[in-house]
Computed example of a mutant assay.
Amino acid sequence: MIVPDISQDAVAVADHYDELDPIYRRVWGEHVHHGLWETGRETPGEAVEELVDTVGDRLGLLPGQACVDIGCGYGSTARRLAVTRGVHVTGFTLSAEQARHAAVHSMPSVDIYVRDWLGNGLPDASADAAWSIESSEHMVDKPRFFAEAHRVLAPGGRFVICAWLAETDASGWKVRHLLEPICREGRLPSLGMREEYEAMATAAGFAVTGYEDVSRRVARTWPICAVRLVKAMLVDPEIRRLALGTRNRGAILSIPRLILAYRTGAMRYGIFRLSKAGENGR
């Protein structure tokens, strides 16, 4: 597990997203996660939705199911799956700014709360499916992240995690100059490897039913974000001020690091499929 030299907690994560809210919406978009290029011809917007739809497919969502979006951001992913799959979604975010924006675009089948997933307050076995798209990295206690998902899911429930991962046995220079700074600048309490995620999932009671490394298919996200950021800084004084003069400005430095981390293989992007045993134990 890669751990930053300055410890991070939920308060730091919330502050990060609240302060940089205008940049995130302008540069990364309202889904606040990578795009997935299947053919290479998708627009950035299409690629982002492709990742959402892939999560819905891997979960096998059915109309009427109760779902949980762990780290829902602005609620765009929850709303898309609610509309396209007919499910009801309960989402959790640490950011008051994200929740405020989500409330402007609210819909009856999506409920969003400003609450730490590690203290989510949901009843046992109350959800049919759950997903976490690039939020597990922000969890201070990753074993508890998995344990809470297992508790909240009903028997037979499915869980899909899209996660930033560290290369297995990354070399020292990759850790020092890429992975550790990415954790620090992005307010990630830790960055795990595939094997660590699977071990924590199994310890929580899940069966690991699938894993896909889609690093090459998502890596295009960061050059696109870099171009968007430069353009925004040139024309928008507020974006320029946030990028250069705020306490969370280190996140901007992570964009070139992420580009290099993907190109060198230090950073991986994985999609995990997990399941909770059914009533009969299978």
Score class of each variant (00 low, 15 high):
166 A>P: 06
97 E>Y: 00
98 Q>E: 14
101 H>W: 15
153 L>S: 12
134 E>I: 06
117 W>E: 04
112 I>E: 07
156 G>H: 07
164 W>N: 13
149 A>C: 12
171 S>L: 07
109 S>G: 00
180 E>I: 00
125 A>I: 03
93 T>G: 04
101 H>M: 05
146 F>I: 02
148 E>S: 03
142 K>G: 07
97 E>R: 14
180 E>R: 14
147 A>V: 04
122 L>N: 09
160 V>N: 08
135 S>I: 04
162 C>W: 00
119 G>S: 11
163 A>Q: 13
169 D>L: 08
121 G>I: 06
151 R>W: 08
169 D>H: 12
98 Q>K: 05
115 R>F: 02
114 V>G: 01
156 G>R: 07
174 K>A: 14
105 H>K: 15
172 G>A: 13
135 S>Y: 03
104 V>H: 12
181 P>G: 02
123 P>H: 11
157 G>M: 09
123 P>Y: 07
117 W>P: 01
98 Q>Y: 05
118 L>G: 08
137 E>S: 13
97 E>K: 13
104 V>C: 06
101 H>I: 10
137 E>A: 15
116 D>T: 07
96 A>K: 03
162 C>I: 08
146 F>Y: 15
157 G>L: 04
110 V>A: 11
109 S>L: 05
103 A>F: 02
102 A>M: 12
130 A>H: 09
153 L>Y: 10
107 M>R: 15
110 V>R: 12
111 D>H: 14
126 S>R: 10
136 S>A: 15
101 H>L: 13
159 F>S: 06
170 A>Y: 09
98 Q>A: 04
99 A>M: 01
150 H>L: 03
129 A>E: 09
149 A>D: 07
118 L>Q: 13
122 L>G: 06
95 S>R: 02
166 A>Y: 06
137 E>D: 07
100 R>V: 00
115 R>H: 04
102 A>P: 08
121 G>L: 04
99 A>E: 08
145 F>E: 03
139 M>H: 12
138 H>C: 11
175 V>H: 02
153 L>H: 12
146 F>N: 00
96 A>M: 00
174 K>L: 10
109 S>M: 08
126 S>F: 10
108 P>D: 09
177 H>P: 00
105 H>I: 01
179 L>H: 02
143 P>F: 11
166 A>E: 10
177 H>E: 13
105 H>Q: 14
173 W>P: 00
94 L>N: 05
109 S>H: 14
99 A>H: 15
113 Y>A: 08
99 A>K: 11
122 L>A: 10
158 R>A: 11
95 S>C: 02
123 P>S: 13
179 L>N: 01
120 N>Q: 10
155 P>D: 12
103 A>I: 01
152 V>A: 10
160 V>L: 08
114 V>K: 02
146 F>D: 02
105 H>M: 11
160 V>C: 10
154 A>N: 01
127 A>V: 07
93 T>V: 04
144 R>Q: 14
180 E>D: 00
136 S>Y: 10
93 T>R: 05
106 S>W: 02
113 Y>G: 00
118 L>R: 11
174 K>F: 00
154 A>V: 02
127 A>M: 09
102 A>S: 13
168 T>S: 13
157 G>T: 05
122 L>I: 09
170 A>P: 05
135 S>E: 08
162 C>K: 01
93 T>F: 04
157 G>S: 07
